[in-house]
Write a protein that binds this DNA or RNA. Structure first.
Lengths: 199, 199
DNA sequence: GTCTATATCCAGATAGAC
DNA sequence: GTCTATCTGGATATAGAC
């Protein structure tokens, strides 16, 4: 009959993506613990049982998303660091971009919320925690490297670049969390405030 | 027999405090959802049933702690704002104090972690969320007022004081969260980095 | 591939003895 | 005041029909 292997594969891929996408939305706003498989199923418009046809467990979905989050984040950082810009400009772009993402509720921002959730929430499986600990260091080091470059040429403030990078990310994270609490009312602060730590 | 009303009351009070104290420790590191009543009971060295003799539910314990957290935080802020110091000095003290608390794992810091947990974690009862939304505005406004004072006399950087206060707290919060993840390895960044946003 | 029905498990909360 | 034993509910995960 009509269905061949390719069609089936396509259905599989689409469903998978669909489940991941709805899960990101739910996890990022409600967290892992209080998102039920039945929530995911119903927002995705499928049955609860079907979710288990695509993922072994709720945790597996979460881990997959975390993996994706860092993949995106780290690759954005890589791209940024390779742009033909001065260190100063790179930091400027990064801060403005991140704040805008937060305010506009871009998919990027959801990933930030997810990471914040993952860092805190303890129901998070150990595998996800491990990914976080490992990957968080990557983006932090990239920012630190940009800062060091700028310090060498005198366009970035003096100070321990690693600590500055740490504050960079934790501040973004803190704002992401506030967004969870305040929802639509959230208004991102002026980028200049954060930038004054570096420029 | 031996026990009179006062003795009983004393036992009651002590047990209550004991339960709250252990709960703070557990909630602040593991979050509400993944802290079981049985965990609280066993670390407090009492039976599970006894916990319910003192608190109606796990959520009640959490709410009580959140209430206490903001009581402490807001009163510290009040005290700070009334100190006979310049606005600049007040901000300086606040930042240094908060960072030191975090690094030294003071009880104060645990309350910060608790708040961070509460903001993010979804299983948190609505009553706690309401307290957070309400009380968070208090400490934020106090910091904002100090900043405005300083801006008037020219000792604090220009900028929207409300937004600056918001970044102030979210940055502290972000660091508190990192502390949850990194535990003992956490090292607070130099206060000067944060201070450069304001001074 | 998808659904419905069900088994299983676990944690919160209660009842009653001491 | 404190404990042990138990009830109960809800959510994950599975089994089996279509």
């Amino acid at each position: 009959m009509g269905r061949n292997k390719e069609t089936n594969q396509k259905i599989r891929d689409e469903r998978r993506e669909q489940i991941l996408s709805e899960s990101l939305l739910l996890f990022s706003t409600r967290g892992l613990a209080s998102t039920k498989i039945s929530d995911i199923a119903s927002t995705a418009g499928i049955s609860q049982g079907l979710v288990y046809h695509y993922f072994r467990s709720k945790e597996d979905i979460f881990i997959e998303l975390i993996r994706g989050a860092f993949e995106r984040l780290n690759s954005s950082c890589e791209i940024l660091s390779r742009m033909p810009l001065s260190p100063r400009e790179k930091i400027d772009i990064a801060v403005r971009g991140l704040l805008q993402d937060l305010e506009n509720n871009q998919e990027n921002a959801r990933y930030h919320l997810l990471m914040a959730q993952a860092m805190i929430s303890e129901t998070v499986p150990e595998e996800a925690k491990a990914i976080i600990r490992r990957e968080i260091a990557v983006s932090q080091e990239i920012i630190a490297a940009i800062l060091r470059d700028g310090q060498k040429e005198g366009s970035i403030k003096e100070g321990d670049a690693d600590e500055m990078a740490l504050v960079f990310w934790t501040s973004i994270n803190g704002l992401a969390i506030l967004k969870v609490v305040n929802g639509a009312e959230f208004k991102a602060p002026a980028p200049e405030i954060l930038l004054s730590m570096f420029l």
